[in-house]
Amino acid sequence: MNLSEASTPLSRLLPPLILGGAGFSYQVFRNPNSAQALEVLKRAFQLGLRAIDTSAYYHPSELLLGEALSHPDFALHYSRDQYLLMTKVGRITATQFDYSPAWVRQSVLRSLQRLRTSYLDVVFCHDVEFVPDEEVLQAVGVLLDMVREGRIKYVGISGYCIDVLTRIARRVREEYSRPLDIVQNWAQMTLQNDRLAREGLAALREAGVSCVCNSSPLAIGLLRANGVPVGDLGDFHPAPPGLRLAAKEAAEYVAGQGESLAALALRHSIRRAQSESTTDLRVTTIMGVTSIAELEDNLATARQVLRISNEPRWLWTVDAGPSTDFGSSKLEGEEDLQAAVREILGSWYDFCFPSPGDGWDVAAKRPVAAAL
């Protein structure tokens, strides 16, 4: 099956694992560069990853990915229809958004140029809770126009606030007489916060959404031993000090049991996504990496949950069950570890990050102080 066929339901094309492009940005990596992106992508493709999610906001991710994907090592081995490219529009900087029709169109055209491709498989409206719903709906309309032009295959929205995502999904279906193809939510199908599974999926399914991406399974690096990532732009992580301390305590406890909190959290998110997938709703996991070592560690962890397929498009099966070499006794022990982590997190379990928070004026699309 050709991955570029827009008539094919996205749920039949989207693999269970997607490579996140934020690892090639100034937000989470110091000095992202073309050598880093090329090395990681070459190894990722060798290991079977065939879908990439990025954003214009994750600068310079699009530029680095475009350079890597057009490298002879890729062009000679992987044609464009053998992988999926997903990017986003609307968010420009931490405090700057532009959802105007002119900018949405310009942003898509710029992404096409940066990624060195003639079409994009998916384009999301980025962090929709920061702008008025009407502007999101208008931007979706522009993206749908670009679908008809052949520049985009599928259209979605992304953000943190589940109630906003579901509300907009319902309104898109009402206004355009068709549902969104896909919705992306971050850090809410994790060991720390499981609200997406409990509160979001049913509502999104009712709105006709057939694909949901769970990104940030480690809550942007919170659920690991070495603390939150700090890139060239400094510490942007929204977790308050109390949650960071609890996560550190959980990581130390898990390490004392001979396990890694990052591996435990990643397995949990992948398994949760698989268990929540149905015939009419595909739930996948976006996995951010910054290095080959991190990529290989994460995929080794994923292998404990997913089976390897002989499919030529990618090696990871869409409907995989737990790997047979991940014994039931360990699974039982894993449940105990997960319960211990939740107990350590205490009141921080299911804590939601403020997004956009009281300091943001949604109508003005800027910080409150700047809006006065």
Rank of each mutant, 00 (worst) to 15 (best):
Y26I: 00
I286Y: 02
L64P: 03
R271T: 01
Y26N: 03
L13Y: 02
K153E: 05
G23I: 02
S277C: 09
I220V: 13
A239Q: 06
A250Y: 11
D235K: 10
V104F: 06
L76V: 02
E39A: 14
R272P: 00
N2Q: 14
L196M: 15
L84I: 14
S328M: 12
F130N: 13
Y349I: 03
W314L: 10
K330D: 09
D358V: 03
Q106I: 01
F130D: 10
E294Y: 02
E175L: 13
A265S: 15
A263Q: 11
T279F: 10
N226S: 14
P229G: 04
C125E: 08
V209R: 06
G359R: 13
E199V: 01
L218H: 03
L76M: 08
S11L: 11
L245W: 11
A363I: 08
P229Y: 00
G256R: 12
R342W: 09
V140S: 09
H77I: 09
V209F: 05
L17W: 07
E67R: 09
A363H: 07
I168V: 15
T301S: 02
V318S: 12
S309K: 01
V104W: 04
I344P: 10
L264D: 06
Q192P: 06
S215I: 01
G159T: 05
R307F: 07
L38G: 05
L295S: 10
D194Y: 14
D73A: 12
L295K: 08
T54C: 00
F45E: 00
F236K: 15
D319V: 10
S328G: 06
F353T: 09
P312G: 10
Q338I: 15
L115Y: 05
G321Y: 00
L337C: 04
F29V: 01
C211S: 13
L65Y: 01
C161W: 11
M1T: 14
D81H: 08
D163I: 12
E335Q: 14
K365C: 15
Y58L: 09
L295F: 10
D325F: 14
R224N: 07
N31A: 09
Q257D: 02
L266Q: 00
E5Q: 06
G21W: 03
V142Y: 08
L315Q: 12
D53K: 00
H126W: 03
T317M: 14
F326M: 12
I157W: 08
L299H: 00
P354S: 04
T284N: 11
P101H: 12
V318L: 13
R12L: 11
R224Y: 02
R171Q: 15
G242L: 07
L144Y: 15
Q257F: 00
L345Y: 01
P16H: 10
A320I: 01
V128D: 01
E343H: 12
E135M: 12
E149K: 05
A246H: 11
P132E: 11
F24T: 05
V362P: 11
L84W: 05
L191S: 07
D325R: 13
V209W: 03
V368I: 13
V254M: 02
I220K: 09
P354H: 04
V305E: 01
V140H: 10
N185L: 06
P217Q: 05
D235H: 12
E62K: 06
G227A: 08
R178C: 06
